[in-house]
Simulated scan of single mutants.
Amino acid sequence: MSLNRIRARWERHDERFAPVRGDTFAEVLFDEGSWLEGPAYSPAWRTVLFSDIPNDRVLAWDEATGAVGVWRSPGGYANGRTVDRAGRMLQCEHGSRSVTRTEPDGTVTTLADRWQGKRLNSPNDLVEHSGGSVWFTDPTYGIQSDYEGFAATPEIDGCHVYRRDPDGSVTRVTDDFAGPNGLAFSADERTLYVADSERKHLRRFDVGPDLTLSGGEVLATCDTGAFDGVRVDDGGRIWAAAHDGLHCIDPDGTLLGKLLLPEVCSNLTFGGPKRNRLFVTATNLLLSIRVTVKGLR
């Protein structure tokens, strides 16, 4: 590696950000990507999987050794991913235009690749509900050119958010986005946060008992670039990747503060044994920084 660490600067915008602190340097775990995305930490494997989308590979950083190796290549031009409650890896793939699940033995199952018989655009990011449904966003970034997938004409009239239920059915849950991207539930799963990268918005939806959405008001607008990946910490604060680093937003929409980094950030996840280690994909870098808050389980 040509780098060991880079400067990280904490910027407070609201007094409620005072409990949030962290290292002043971010450790560089990997610096040889083209455009990195989709970090997900597996406690069982003690591994962070992340995507190098243009190079069509999924990489794995080993927590015990610090080594980075290829987990899957070709990688389906994979983007966002998460570890489900059974320890399986769920990921969005631009190449196959699908959401897949990888079992511990390596078996891959396609969870969703169509809605009403039409091929999805290019699933981007996803989150699992405690009831077993998988919620994902479907912009067109992976089919706009051959850079992050395969150029193709959309079959669906727009970019939407979907829910894949345990019975295999796929439901469109909202249809008024320009570029849906990262998403995350609140701790009680009564709220769903979704980034609209094209409009630079972070939106808030109420989740009903029947898993339908209502509301959808703009919670925050990005002031530097656009919001991408989204996560929530154990204090209910929303963390959103942006062009200048990570923005930390209160559930009431107030920008509490920022973790400023020198590269455009695409996504993040909390990991480590205490869930207090932020893993961030930032252009060609995978970064790690320890903080005083924990990610939701």
Rank of each mutant, 00 (worst) to 15 (best):
L219G: 01
V161I: 13
A195I: 03
R172Y: 02
A220P: 02
P180A: 10
C222D: 12
C159D: 05
R164F: 01
S186Y: 04
A241F: 11
A187I: 03
A220Y: 10
V232H: 08
V161M: 05
L219P: 00
V218E: 15
R164Q: 10
F177N: 04
R231Y: 02
H201L: 12
G236H: 07
V194G: 01
T224I: 01
A187D: 15
E155I: 06
D234W: 04
A240F: 02
T171N: 11
R172W: 02
G215L: 12
G182I: 05
L183N: 05
G216Y: 04
V194M: 03
N181C: 02
G216L: 09
C159A: 13
D210G: 05
G215P: 12
P154F: 05
A240K: 05
A178L: 14
A242T: 10
R199V: 11
G215D: 14
G225E: 11
D175C: 05
E198V: 08
C222Q: 12
G215W: 15
L211I: 04
G216C: 09
D228N: 10
G236I: 04
R231I: 11
A220M: 06
G235F: 13
A184T: 02
S197E: 11
G158N: 09
G208C: 07
C222W: 03
A226Y: 11
E155S: 13
F185T: 02
L211Y: 11
L192Q: 03
H201D: 09
K200Y: 13
P209R: 12
A241G: 11
A242F: 03
V230Q: 09
G168F: 05
V218K: 13
G168P: 07
H160D: 11
L213R: 03
E198K: 10
G225W: 07
R199T: 15
D234R: 09
L213A: 03
Y162I: 03
P209N: 12
P209E: 12
D233N: 13
V218P: 08
T153F: 08
F205D: 00
G235N: 14
L211S: 10
I156M: 08
E189F: 14
H201I: 07
A240N: 10
G208D: 11
T174Y: 08
G235S: 15
A226L: 12
V207E: 00
T191R: 06
P154Q: 12
L211T: 10
R164Y: 01
V232K: 04
R231F: 06
D228V: 10
D167R: 13
A184P: 08
E155K: 07
H201G: 01
G182L: 06
D188E: 14
D210C: 05
F185G: 01
H201P: 00
T221Y: 00
L192D: 01
D188M: 06
L219R: 00
G215Y: 14
D165C: 08
C159G: 03
I156S: 01
E189P: 08
G182T: 10
V207Q: 01
G179S: 13
T174H: 08
V230Y: 04
T212N: 10
A226E: 11
G229R: 05
R172K: 15
G208Q: 12
E217D: 14
R199E: 14
P166G: 08
T212R: 14
D234N: 14
R204V: 11
N181R: 04
F185C: 01
L213P: 02
